[in-house]
Nucleic acid binder design. Structure first.
Length: 1054
RNA sequence: GGGUCCAUAGCUCAGCUUGGUUAGAGCGUUCGGCUGAUAACCGAAAGAUCGCCAGUUCAAAUCCGGCUGGACCCA
């Protein structure tokens, strides 16, 4: 039996234990009766921290989908995985070791230490995640989880590299990165943007002479003079206007809108604007490279590649400097991109410590930033400096060492996504995204087809398995341990070395081409490559063939450019075809804290997952997640909201089951026998039953449709309405009266009600299960004997067309409105609902045939002795009142108007009104004056006849005879008394069905006592007692109650 | 700086495609009532300048433009 009150935390733990004990998860996976087998491999959470509430939401959607798919008749291979490598893990591990991870530090403590720490750390966080998953009820196969750092995973990941290598989609190029000269490491984008400091730098205005012009110079500005050494071109904005300014005997080119300010800044008063030239017309103009003597290599480039030329780009800012920008592709990302576009070379004469190499001529061997002032001096000697001063500005620094970063073009490995053609887009277009906005965004990202830099200068990651020959430069790519061992020159750690740095670095390879010694490219792979390989790497070949493309995936919207992208690109590369490894991808919105702020470690407003899941009912949290907003919307997480509506829905669902169970047990109900088929055969279904059965079909249809479209909030709202509004608020109150009886002659009717209720609740349980697995499985197991070992072995109900009944639904809606109106009238007339009324008349706008059964139900619910339903006023106990239109009549009758008033007071206005309505006009003679009254002279007001009250709402008029007649008063009194006794019974903890020995009553009101005596049998039945006594005196410890100001004392003898 | 999306009651949303009564609903709030499953329920009330500014139109929450604010992605 269910406990009489809903204690979610106890219930949920009981269900968890039940699932574990009965191996439900494994049995669901191993069952053989499912039609279709589909795969799901989750996006791996990064094990560098505790799960927070946002992660919990994401995992909830995964579980929801799993349960939905399972109940839809699919067998889901539901695999979990963990992201265990890459920058975030490495940084966290370094932090926990108390180091910053710079190169020198690592050399000192050894990479082994960092790797060891990373492995240890991910195990710790893994435990937290597993705990949270268990609390959440995530039915994921954690026994078969994939771990991205494991050798077997890495070897499979390499297979994708291999495919790319074979297709020539993998290769070397340069990428401009923020680089710390001190730590000698490249920084990731997020690392760069996290640290900016106010620093002093040189501010240099200089000029470069244009070729093909007598005395014409371009004016340029830089805060990094050393980049003049790597200067390749000058950018102009194609849309801007540039002025030719005469200064002394020279002509300077400056953006027109900068001339005045710039001259002012440079302290040049004597100048003259000679003319203008458009940005576009500057294209292709070449200038003399200022440091040609110092850097011979540049002179070579000049001749060979026609460098030191003006190019056009929208990004050139004409609001600072001179509106022309000097560009050094080796030291700037935009510069680099433009150089690539223009087919200009990258002059990149730096070593790892950011000192210039021999190629830099005069500057060789000097640290880049130390050449700033040397360059200024060299320019000054040539008379090219216009002004050299200092500037304080925000500049990115290294978060570890706080050294200034330098932008450097580093040699990296790339996937040439731009050469994949339209395969990626085709693959992406074939995927279901459920919502338009994320779909468009994703497709736009795919359309960019930008090369993907997959190499990272890091330690803890999948190593790039390429060895470069120290003699001939040949790249020896080896994509498995076996190949490496076979080609190894040196294997210091034996053939079973770990596939990580530093072990893999120690291996040297015999060059395939020349037999020379080849060393590994010391890169590791981008972590997105690592996790993006999961759909292949997490499976065996056989599984990959069977389950990929997987049926569905869901992750946060931030994964659009992350995991969703890398999965798709890797799938296309690996398959060498426009094939996505997933059929559907649902992008979820983010979660915000209660203050609508983004949760972040620095703000300290992170809501912990385990804590929240322990504190609140998990079903309610899950319902809240699903119900509050659509999965793509941002969810503002306000914990107190969980206990409002979501809890209410679950509480109601629980008590509906309690109600069914408590009542049905007494009547020996057996859902195997007394099912719907039985009830239909018995013919005891009334229109209330037909209504709720019809509704349940619609709810089934709508819910499943919403689930299939990933509109989980719609599904939750549909079920909320069904449970609260339809079953709890309408159906149960309507049938409640019938269940109070224990008359054997109506047993079949009660069993019918149980069968209907049982049918609807079971349906609701199954439909709600994906959202709220604990309560639904518990109620399912407790309340139904016609069941399986878990609700998860059920399947979504089919819509039973035979039970759909438009007519009944329409009629019920009307009846419902009629009851509401009647209740409103009672309220207005101060008529308690327990008091029956003699007569009720409805005037409704539509013709409906009501069956005798329906009338009976209505009478019961309205608590009326007589009931009439009409569509017009003809037989209604109404009369008209007339309100004369004084303005109109006054003009016509003038001084005779008072006579009309007197007449109206004396006459039967109802009859007059009906005559006016029928004939449009009436002729009268009042005190010898003949009058013609028109219909439009009056306003007609409908009023109830004497003894009735009237209310109109929503087009329905209801009239009730409100007179208090003695038998009705007595009936009401009995109900009043009964209700107080019942409340007391409940208070002292008596079961509703328990029959007590005696109820003893005392009252200071004779009428009450007399009524009780008169209706003692009825009262005995109502309050379930063998005997009722009324007494003259009572003790003070009796229960004191009040009925309309009169005292009632109650004693119950058990 | 660029892109995508969003803005309607305290909260969550509907209405916008196709312009046309008084902008709806649920939750929450207040008051009153009911209750032998319930923390349920019933009735009433309060609560909105439809982000702002212009435009098109007889008529704009709805269509167009701009602005402001927010979210996300990318620089």
């Amino acid at each position: 039996m269910l406990e009489p009150s809903y204690k979610p935390k106890e219930l949920e733990e009981k269900v968890r234990v039940y699932w574990d004990k009965n191996n439900i998860r494994r049995r669901v996976e191993e069952r053989e009766d499912q039609k279709e087998v589909v795969g799901y491999v989750e996006g791996p959470p990064t094990l560098n921290g505790e799960p927070h509430i946002g992660h919990v939401r994401g995992r909830f959607y995964k579980d929801l989908w799993f349960r939905y798919a399972t109940l839809s008749g699919k067998k889901v291979i539901f695999r979990g995985g963990w992201d265990t490598q890459g920058l975030p893990v490495e940084l966290q591990a370094a932090k926990e070791l108390g180091i910053t991870g710079e190169k020198q530090e690592l050399i000192k403590i050894g990479m082994e230490k960092l790797v060891e720490k990373a492995k240890e750390m991910i195990k710790t966080y893994y435990a937290s995640w597993i705990s949270s998953d268990r609390l959440l009820g995530l039915m994921m196969d954690h026994e078969k989880d994939y771990w991205t750092y494991r050798d077997e995973y890495i070897e499979r990941e390499w297979q994708i590299l291999k495919a790319a290598w074979e297709e020539r989609l993998l290769g070397e190029s340069y990428r401009v990165v923020g680089y710390c000269p001190h730590c000698q490491t490249a920084l990731s984008h997020s690392e760069v943007s996290s640290e900016y400091e106010l620093l002093e730098d040189p501010s240099l205005y200089y000029k470069a002479k244009l070729r093909d012009h007598e005395n014409r110079y371009i004016v340029l500005w830089t805060t990094m003079p050393f980049t003049l050494i790597t200067d390749v071109m000058v950018g102009a904005n194609p849309d801007a206007s540039y002025s030719i300014v005469e200064v002394g005997n020279e002509e300077w080119v400056i953006a027109s809108n900068r001339v005045a300010d710039l001259m002012n800044e440079l302290g040049i008063a004597d100048y003259k604007v000679k003319g203008n030239v458009l940005g576009v017309d500057l294209k292709g103009k070449r200038y003399y490279y200022p440091l040609a003597e110092e850097v011979p290599k540049q002179k070579e480039y000049d001749e060979k590649f026609k460098t030191h030329v003006m190019v056009l780009d929208q990004s050139v800012d004409i609001s600072t400097g001179s509106g022309l920008v000097h560009m050094a592709p080796a030291n700037g990302e935009i510069d680099f991109n433009i150089a690539q576009r223009e087919g200009l070379p990258i002059f990149n004469p730096f070593d790892d410590s950011v000192h210039f190499t021999q190629e830099a001529g005069k500057y060789a061997g000097i640290f880049a930033r130390d050449t700033d002032f040397i360059v200024i001096e060299d320019l000054r000697k040539k008379g090219l400096v216009i002004k050299a001063s200092k500037i304080i500005h925000e500049y990115p620094t290294c978060w570890r060492s706080h050294h200034r970063l330098v932008w450097l073009a580093r040699r990296e490995y790339f996937y040439w996504v731009d050469k994949v053609g339209d395969k990626a887009l085709k693959a992406a277009e074939g995927v279901e995204y459920f919502f338009e906005a994320p779909k468009n965004r994703f497709l736009n990202i795919i359309r960019e087809m930008k090369p993907w830099c997959i190499s990272r200068e890091r330690v803890w990651g999948t190593p790039l398995p390429i060895w470069t020959c120290s003699q001939c430069g040949e790249k020896n790519a080896l994509f498995s341990r076996k190949e490496i061992v076979q080609n190894a020159l040196e294997l210091p750690d034996g053939p079973n070395f770990e596939l990580h740095r530093p072990w893999v670095d120690r291996i040297t390879i015999k060059c395939k081409k020349c037999g020379g010694k080849a060393f590994r490219e010391s890169f590791v792979l981008d972590t997105w490559h690592n996790s993006g390989a999961s759909q292949y790497a997490a499976f065996t070949d056989e599984e990959y063939r069977r389950y990929v493309p997987v049926e569905f995936l869901t992750e946060g919207i931030d994964q659009t450019r992350g995991w969703a992208y890398s999965l798709l690109i890797l799938s296309v590369i690996f398959n060498k075809a426009p094939k996505s490894c997933y059929k559907a991808f649902l992008f979820q919105g983010h979660i915000l804290g209660p203050d609508e702020a983004k949760m972040s470690k620095s703000l300290g407003n992170i809501i912990d997952g385990n804590e929240t899941l322990s504190q609140y009912p998990v079903d309610a949290i899950r319902f809240y997640f699903a119900w509050k907003v659509s999965p793509i919307a941002t969810l503002v997480f306000k914990p107190n909201e969980i206990l409002e509506r979501p809890f209410q829905v679950l509480n109601t669902l629980y008590h509906l089951h309690v109600y069914l169970q408590q009542n049905s047990v007494l009547d020996g109900f057996n859902d195997k026998k007394h099912n719907l088929i039985w009830a239909q055969k018995e013919g005891k279904l009334n229109f209330l039953d037909e209504w709720i059965l019809s509704r349940s079909q619609r709810i089934t249809e709508e819910t499943i449709k919403s689930y299939s479209k990933s509109e989980f909030n719609e599904a939750a709202k549909t079920l909320e309405k069904f449970i609260i509004e339809e079953i709890s608020q309408k159906y149960v109150p309507a049938i409640r009266r019938e269940l109070w009886s224990d008359d054997p002659s109506t047993l079949d009717r009660r069993l019918t009600i149980y069968s209907v209720l049982s049918y609807c609740l079971k349906k609701a349980d199954i439909l709600l299960h994906p959202i709220c697995p604990f309560i639904t499985d518990c109620l399912y197991l407790e309340c139904f004997t016609d069941r399986k070992d878990s609700i998860l072995f059920e399947s979504f109900p089919e819509v039973d067309e035979k039970l759909l009944n438009d007519l009944v639904e329409r009629k019920f809606t009307l009846v419902d409105r009629m009851i509401s109106t009647a209740n409103a009238l009672r309220m207005k007339a101060k008529l308690k609902r327990r008091w029956p009324v003699r007569e009720t008349v409805f005037i409704i706008p539509t013709t409906e045939d009501f069956t005798e059964q329906e009338i009976r139900v209505l009478k019961d619910l309205i608590n009326t002795k007589q009931l009439t339903i009409a569509t017009d006023l003809a037989s209604a106990p109404t009369k008209y009142n007339l309100k004369p239109n004084v303005e109109k009549l006054g003009k016509r009758l003038r001084k005779d108007l008072p006579k009309l008033f007197t007449f109206l007071e004396r006459t039967d206005r109802d009859t007059l009104a009906e005559e006016l309505i029928a004939k449009k006009k009436v002729e009268l003679e009042i005190e010898g004056i003949k009058l013609i009254l028109h219909e439009e002279d009056f306003q007609f007001i409908i009023e109830p006849k004497e003894g009735y009250d009237l209310l109109e709402s929503d087009g329905i008029k209801v009239l009730m005879k409100v007179s208090r007649e003695s038998d009705l008063i007595k009936e009401g009194t009995i109900r009043d008394v009964a209700r107080r006794i019942q409340a007391y019974r409940k208070e002292i903890g008596l079961n509703p069905t328990y029959v007590v020995k005696s109820v003893i009553l005392w009252s200071d009101d004779n009428e009450i006592i007399e009524t009780v005596r008169e209706k003692v049998e009825e009262l005995k039945f109502l309050v379930r007692t063998e005997n009722i006594e009324t007494v003259e005196r009572c003790d003070e410890d009796w229960k004191e109650e009040e009925i309309d100001g009169k005292r009632l004392m109650i004693k119950i003898v058990i």
